[in-house]
Design a protein around this nucleic acid. Sequence first.
DNA 1: CTGTTAGCGCCTTCAT
DNA 2: ATGAAGGCGCTAACAG
Lengths: 332, 332
Amino acid sequence: MVKLTDVARAAGVGYGTASRALSGKGPVGGDARARVLEAARELGYTADATARALRERRTRSVGLIVPDMTNEFYTASAEVLQEVLRAAGHHLFVATTGNHPGRDQEALQEMAARRVDGIVHVPSGPSTAATSPVPVVELNRYSGRNVPAVVSDDYAGVKELTELVIAAGYTDIAAIVGPDTYSTSRDRLAGFKAATEQAGFSENAATGKRLRIVFSDFSAEGGASAMQTLLPDPPQALLPLSSRLVMGVLKTTREAGIRVPDDLSLAGYGDPDWFEIWGPGITTFAPPLAQMGAKAAEILLDLINGHEPTDTLSRIPGALRIRGTLGNPGIS
Amino acid sequence: MVKLTDVARAAGVGYGTASRALSGKGPVGGDARARVLEAARELGYTADATARALRERRTRSVGLIVPDMTNEFYTASAEVLQEVLRAAGHHLFVATTGNHPGRDQEALQEMAARRVDGIVHVPSGPSTAATSPVPVVELNRYSGRNVPAVVSDDYAGVKELTELVIAAGYTDIAAIVGPDTYSTSRDRLAGFKAATEQAGFSENAATGKRLRIVFSDFSAEGGASAMQTLLPDPPQALLPLSSRLVMGVLKTTREAGIRVPDDLSLAGYGDPDWFEIWGPGITTFAPPLAQMGAKAAEILLDLINGHEPTDTLSRIPGALRIRGTLGNPGIS
DNA sequence: CTGTTAGCGCCTTCAT
DNA sequence: ATGAAGGCGCTAACAG
């Protein structure tokens, strides 16, 4: 591997001069500069980032910790996060936790050991209390630690989505939500409850407006079995509040021969691309994943540059996508 | 940041002793070892990976270069790749190229500058000629460089898939394939051609067995407009040879009111989870993405450990998933 | 403007 | 078994 001294020697200049010429910082004679650049190009020199990191005490890299690289819910944010960071000269270290909370801590430490300049963290669970020596911003979920977080405004979004369902005239509505150890589950559930209760729905059907809530884990399997439990007495309209839950529900309705929306109305959460082409199109609340990624990157860059965090929780509004699965209550 | 000298001082031992105690390499008194470990724990010491990398001339990190983090086709491999690598003590540096070939080179250099121990590369295009100073294995696509590559056996898979379509009795078949700058496009197309030609299909319908091929870029938009061009004279059966192309085709059929499989039979490529629940289920060839990721990781680890590459191109067989979109030619 | 030099934190011989 | 010291490649501060 060719190093700085090689370049300096080839250019016939001193060590430091070569360094200054390459970095552009510090004075250097136009003549010497040219010779150094030439020599560097000739020899195919690229500065050793590990040495530079040691010396400069920064790596120009940031850590990204996500539960799972295959979930569009995370990668859609990660993609633009990566773009913004790259534009600022930072590169990405990625670790996945498989939603196994113990591995959050592990990943955090690993990143710290590698001296990343900052970390974007999608927490796997509730507060993994440890404080990090490098700036952290949480994405998608907030753990309760006192760090900036960027999330979708799920409360507002799901509330609005639920209001849409209610406005369509359904009087027997159920939601499937993830474990309440996740902030996302709690926010979405709160939005659902706010809308239904405000419209006079309650868990005991006394008012004639029935509302049900089924808890499940955040997987397709979870959604499928949650739907199973509803099979004996299905609601008119169902809100599986994550795209994986939607997937699971559709597996079950499919097997059970339940037609959506003819037999069961559906409103979902998230907006993976297939929502648009499934059946009549899935009506859903789409969180602003790209914006969230960009915002998280910007906040982290600020933190890295020494700015103090201004607001610790950014809720970014998403958008309703009204398609066909809500159907028309008419006959029912 | 607490460093080794701090630990040594706190433990009342010398610098080197502390290092040996922590690393477990080299002799150290049981007594001293205990004190060092204790002190390290107490102070929350973690070795500086940048310093260690400089000294040891390896980073225990590997680079992953992919076109796009949001495409299941890459992330499904990446996920298990990451697991295998992690188990071997390596962590992942990720760069995306957006399928923009210039950025492959950029990413390769960046990774080399960071002194990763190895690189897994999903090439954006044809041979980006440069030779890398670190071991590289290509994944999903092969660029033509003389480096080991791990790919799905698309030729065999698509051939088999096409034979299935032919066996169903269709006599007017079309395929939509990506740009032939990609090895994947070429392999899939070759499989399609092999099966059709062997069965007596040709591009001029003289034999009564008609075959058509439409080129497109690898996006949903590409698939949609390719389908548009077929609209005036649709085939009986269509094979969009990538999952994004399938997505695009379905957008167009949906808008045009074409029913699948009643009006048009379909056999796809890839197996994102929604293929199973779309309509009657999408019949498809599923490449072994997880195995490919694992295999790539294993080959890279071998390379890193100094083994010479044994075979330079591993084609791993995938599996047919027979579902409902192929329909029944009967009436047509 | 340029060459020389002192570390960044760690691992690893080399004496002791 | 332990302490001391050199050096990985680089940047920045200093002297010329």
